[in-house]
Design a protein around this nucleic acid. Sequence first.
DNA 1: TCAACTTTGTGCATGGGTTCACAAACGTCT
DNA 2: AGACGTTTGTGAACCCATGCACAAAGTTGA
Lengths: 227, 227
Amino acid sequence: MSADPALRREIPDATVARLPEYLRTLSRLAEDGVLSVSSEELAAEVGVRSAQLRKDLSHLGSYGVRGVGYDVETLALEISRALGLTEDWPVAIVGMGNLGHALASYSGFVTKGFRIVGLYDDDPALADEKIVGVAIRPLAELTEHHAVDPIAIGVIATPAPAAQAVCDALVGAGISSILNFAPAVLSVPSGVDVRRVDLSTELQILAFHAQRKSLAAGDLRAAVAAP
Amino acid sequence: MSADPALRREIPDATVARLPEYLRTLSRLAEDGVLSVSSEELAAEVGVRSAQLRKDLSHLGSYGVRGVGYDVETLALEISRALGLTEDWPVAIVGMGNLGHALASYSGFVTKGFRIVGLYDDDPALADEKIVGVAIRPLAELTEHHAVDPIAIGVIATPAPAAQAVCDALVGAGISSILNFAPAVLSVPSGVDVRRVDLSTELQILAFHAQRKSLAAGDLRAAVAAP
DNA sequence: TCAACTTTGTGCATGGGTTCACAAACGTCT
DNA sequence: AGACGTTTGTGAACCCATGCACAAAGTTGA
């Protein structure tokens, strides 16, 4: 009756968002031969408060040793388990422009529980080109491919106008986890997860803060120019 | 004494993060010839609650008309102003691998208040290649360049091991807004803004939810396998 | 074995963010 | 001009997340 808390309880979204960072740092420490870390040390590496780190980890279970800290390897394994990275997730990328190429050859894929099984683009000029050993195929072949060799996560790297149609195709094929790099809001049925990564949103947020800094630095044009 | 609230008051971070989405949707509506929207309609487009949208907009000032809604063009302009997009922000990209190339040729740059003024990479094979009219130069030239033609935002698109050194170079040159695509935590002096965009973090968050869904779907292995 | 020290895990308080619900404000129609 | 319907802007309640502070639990050294 006392199963793994990671699977029984709800892990808060804010915590889930930090787990990959913890895992990355732990992996680096493991490579450096570090065997054990305290919450204080690990938190400092990651850039969070130690109390936050401990509370986050407490949602996965109790893997620390009081007076000592956490075993690096054990903790990394438990976080991997919680995130579902003990198995490999098959990923397909749709849209093989500059961004799609960059994503396909991104080393972060293979190392961490993800495996590219499909690359799609309807541009005939790209047909049969191979990246990391996978051929680029027309999107129409996706459903067929998915039936033979299931895809867990679809990545959309097309221009914005094509994104919704591609999304519909992915959902239609039965894929329910989507990572969207196109600057467009996708509408999907409930049960489908969409995460968006958008360069220009991030730039705009930076611009906002940059503006605030330059105004705070004694630039009073705004106040003077106010109507 | 009643200056623009966007410049006087503090706009919550959560609101700032949503403003680019509102702006993008408003721009699309404007292109489609829509003159006016209610908070209900706009919220539906963006995928948020109307109350949230109204509260967000209220932080910028009072630009709606009761009983009618918001003028699309006016609201878009006010959001642009709040975000600081009425002026162009000069951007430099460091690291011209696949990702750097993709970012440099990304159309979202020029259209929305950003302008690429520098591309840097120490790989001699890339020297003097031009993308969107800008030559790739060694990173050592950055400080000099910045002194002549200031850079507001630095984008790091290098592999993780190089990220901190590049970051130090950017900060050393006087750049205080950084967008980091490398999977590494950067340490910077206070006053410098860093935002991180990380593919593998996003994939891992998707994997977590995908795992939850597959477990919830009647797969009881976890409960049975529990010690 | 026991005391002193270290570090985890967590109850509790605090703060922000989201949602609800409604009064105030506007346009419209008679 | 006045009544009616619509939509904004916002006070108030709720909810989640963060940070503090400490008891519980472990190690180390005498």
